[in-house]
């Protein structure tokens, strides 16, 4: 079997060049946007109490299956995001999806759907004291530090694009979107950051 990891492939934002806008006086700090490059992603559908899956997730991701709405669990480079009452997304390093899928997608697991969507989605991180302001300009989720805290993940709209937004740190978020929407999402985020100054770094 051909290992994808060993073939050079394009990320959602491979065509996007590095760009920047200077930090004006009085800004609390630049917004730093980074392409996450190739990250593997697996969509998982099953009942939340599926014992085979719960164990396999613990084994392969290193955390429990998150059952609280709007959250994700992370262990090292791998994480699992709650998307709905019977839907999750696993994120892992490039090339990890084959092994993870093999562990999850077994006859013993019963009614499950484990689907590799690594290439269907792209992601950027957005970092800095104004990261929340930039997101709030385009998304109606409450991004106040009291309301959107580390470990939360929401699916919503970033202007006209469907996205999943993760709170990685107090001032660092991840925006995951459909591959074909990523150039638009990057344009939105960088345009919204001009007020504070930004730096976009390609993967």
């Amino acid at each position: 079997m051909v290992k994808l990891k060993n073939i050079p492939g394009l990320s959602a934002l491979s065509a996007a060049k590095a760009s920047a806008s200077p930090q004006p006086d009085g800004s609390k700090g630049m917004v730093v946007i980074r392409d996450t490059g190739l990250l593997d992603k697996i969509n998982l559908r099953c009942q939340a109490d599926n014992p085979v899956i719960t164990k396999a997730v613990k084994r392969m991701v290193g955390t429990d299956l998150p059952t609280a709405a709007n959250t994700f669990n992370q262990a090292g480079h791998r994480s699992i995001i709650w998307l709905g009452p019977d839907e999750w997304m696993i994120m892992a390093e490039n090339g990890a999806s084959d092994d993870i899928t093999a562990e999850l997608d077994t006859p013993e697991a019963g009614h499950v759907a484990v689907v590799n969507i690594s290439d269907a989605l792209g992601a950027v991180t957005i970092e800095g004291p104004h990261a929340r302001d930039v997101l709030a300009k385009n998304c109606a989720i409450d991004f106040h530090p009291r309301a959107f805290t580390k470990g939360m993940a929401v699916q919503s709209l970033l202007s006209h694009a469907g996205v999943t937004i993760l709170c990685l740190e107090d001032d660092k978020m991840m925006v995951i979107g459909r591959t074909s929407f990523m150039p638009y999402i990057l344009d939105l985020l960088s345009d919204s950051s001009i007020e504070y100054g930004y730096d976009y770094q390609a993967a």
Partner: peptide, 11 residues
């Protein structure tokens, strides 16, 4: 019922 309070435009 699953995600909590959201704006109408998400629905």
């Amino acid at each position: 019922p699953f995600c909590g309070e959201r704006e109408e435009l998400e629905f």
